[in-house]
Amino acid sequence: MKTQIKEYERLRWINLDADLPESDSHSEELRQRGSDIIDGLRSNPKTLPSRYFYDDLGSELFEQITDLPEYYPTRTEQAILDDYVSEIVALTGACELVELGSGSSRKTHTLLTAYSQLEDPLHYYPIDVSAGILRTTALQLLNDYPKLNVCGVAGTYERALANLPPRMVQNRMLMFLGSTMGNLDDRSCDLFLTQVQQALQPGEFFLLGVDLQKPIEILEAAYNDAQGLTAAFNLNILRHLNHRFAGDFNLDNFEHFAFFNTTASQIEMHLRSLTAQTAKLKDLDLEISLQAGETIHTEISRKFNLPALTDMLAAHALQPLKVWTDSQSWFGLILCQRQCLLSNGCP
């Protein structure tokens, strides 16, 4: 029991996106919170925000996907981290680590182990929309790293970046691994990088992992795995909506559909309707109709060109210090430093 008390003394918890109670008094608030779903399903073509993939089951499925033989990004990025983590630590010095979309924090172990060798206190802020995997991971990390302090933040990237806890040490590194930035379109990416810029002080760091352009057959195989885990992950977004908003989507009436869009240089994931059908989300007061063959667009995964990306980062006062890739240049890891803005009166 004493050990458990000590663990919780090193754990703080912030929930920015708790599920609302299912009652009539909250129906309007529920509709406001689900406005992105309403807008997406009423648009043409229909879309769903990819953040709804990540309930507890969706997070578990994604962790299984990262171990698939076809899914190269996780193991490739991990190899880059293993090779260059000491260089990252040398460039940043001691700093607290803030990770967007932390999930199981599997790759973060490499960084935590390296930074724990420094004499300074180690603080880690994992941020994820799945409160379940966040709590499980936080407790495991406290057991693995006796000197680690964890502040788990449950919520979306947008809300978390706007509500980060006060710094516990003078230096901070914000991390966005796994090429999750590839899920953002141009407009969302610009907004996101502006939020990153605003969340960091001049001199602090941003570590970004991105998937790079490569042969189409490799890309499409990664999102159409033989075991069907990506299909299950894609379909789970409907299951999540059913549970969260009292929906009646019949998952048997949909199939997973993923392909590489060469013009936009991105993988697109859709759910294709196998029949003409209607579905309701009662708590959102929403009913939609789909024709046979019509799709709901659930995710993009952009594949980046490194020179164009580094220019984009620099335009947001995030100056790339070092870029690391694997031997095949399939994946890139970029360490940026937040620059001073002259408009803020910096010298």
Score class of each variant (00 low, 15 high):
E119P: 10
N234T: 03
K107L: 10
Y125V: 15
H297D: 02
T66Q: 09
F257I: 03
C189W: 02
K214N: 04
T295G: 08
L193R: 00
H123I: 07
A94S: 15
L251W: 10
A199F: 06
R159Y: 05
L193S: 00
R167S: 14
A315P: 01
L148I: 04
P347G: 09
Y71V: 00
F254Q: 01
R12T: 13
L229S: 01
L200K: 00
Q78Y: 10
Q140F: 05
M168G: 09
M168L: 14
Q198C: 06
L309T: 00
D39R: 14
M269D: 01
C95H: 02
G40W: 06
G132A: 13
D128H: 00
I127C: 03
S188A: 15
Y145V: 02
A162R: 13
L97M: 08
W13M: 08
L321C: 07
G182S: 02
A317H: 14
Q328C: 06
S301M: 04
V98C: 08
K322Q: 15
R75Y: 05
L177D: 00
E220N: 08
Q339F: 03
K303G: 07
Q4N: 13
S104W: 06
A315Q: 12
S35Q: 14
L306D: 05
L207F: 10
T47K: 15
P146R: 04
A114K: 08
A226L: 12
G203T: 02
C346N: 09
D56S: 14
E99F: 04
P307L: 03
C95S: 10
L284C: 05
S116G: 06
A94V: 04
A314R: 14
L48F: 08
E294G: 07
S25A: 13
L229Q: 06
Y157L: 04
A221W: 05
A199T: 03
T262R: 12
R172A: 06
P73Q: 01
T74V: 04
I133R: 01
T66W: 05
D211N: 03
A292G: 10
Y71G: 00
G132V: 11
S105N: 11
R33A: 10
T310M: 07
L342E: 13
C340I: 08
I38H: 09
L212W: 03
D17V: 00
T3Y: 11
L290T: 00
